[in-house]
Design a protein around this nucleic acid. Structure first.
Lengths: 159, 159
DNA sequence: GGTGAAACTTCTAATAA
DNA sequence: TTATTAGAAGTTTCACC
């Protein structure tokens, strides 16, 4: 996998766009004291390089009734079933992420549900998959996400 | 927390914007056979209601040299230290998410690092926080994210 | 609620420095 | 690589359904 080096201007453009993808290029240009054309060229370069993969809205799932988050560790009867089980897990829409991991569990996933009742249904679906030996659930009582801007700044600057 | 009902048109607008925030409102209008003005009003309504919290770029962290993902479960000496430890964790930029959980661990977080050496440093930083009794690491060998579009469609439609 | 058109803003690509 | 510019395209408002 190729590794790209971005300069300070690229970083600042990314920072602004990560914060809000709809910020006009003209605003970015004004703030960074460069032309809008330059912003356009830089963004295109990063898109072509695949550093910018796309953009997405941040949705408030709580407002839509999905405030329950849990992590579920899965023990398999046999690791050879990993691929099969992963495929089955991906068919359950409320499982938002699944990882094959080393350590305690074979597969580890995150679920987002309406409430405990709904979460129970999802966990039962996971338990019912062939090859799943047992599961262990951790309910999230509080989520704390790192500030995107700071993450970008600190992580990328030191590359 | 208030719960909002969105109609089919709202869902379709969200679907398109979740897929790509820079899709022109005129394109959305054409596809849904409504006017661009309507799209504008609907989006604004969802922004005002807080359902659309913002927008962000999807960055290819692998291309920037960050391909190592791990989950770390943290055991505290005493649950009363939860708030303090969480604050300290949030100072580490490579910890991207942290959850207070029930079950096996007291706090559970996700880290993104360059490689095993870098991950080790981050985990040591977590271990060094006052009140942290011990940690347990699960390394992600393979990440599988549910398709955003399908997630939206399946989850929200049945509200 | 939605529409359509006008006024305004932004994007994009070509050209030039 | 960056700046300028101008035509194309998108956004936003508003009078009217």
């Amino acid at each position: 996998m190729a590794k790209f080096r971005l300069d300070e201007v690229d970083h600042q453009i990314l920072d602004m766009l990560i914060d809000n993808t709809r910020v006009p290029f003209t605003d970015i240009a004004k703030k960074l004291l460069i032309s809008a054309g330059t912003v356009h060229v830089r963004v295109k370069k990063m898109e072509d390089a695949g550093i910018i993969k796309g953009s997405s809205l941040t949705i408030d799932y709580k407002k839509l009734g999905y405030s329950f988050i849990a992590y579920v560790g899965i023990f398999l009867q046999n690791t050879s079933q990993t691929k099969f089980v992963l495929e089955r897990i991906n068919l359950i829409p409320f499982v938002t992420v699944a990882h094959v991991t080393t350590g305690k569990f074979n597969i580890f996933c995150k679920i987002r549900a309406k409430d405990t009742e709904h979460a129970k249904e999802i966990i039962f679906m996971l338990d019912d998959i062939d090859g799943v030996y047992r599961t262990e659930t951790m309910i999230s009582l509080e989520e704390s996400l790192n500030d995107k801007k700071r993450l970008m700044h600190d992580i990328f600057r030191e590359l």
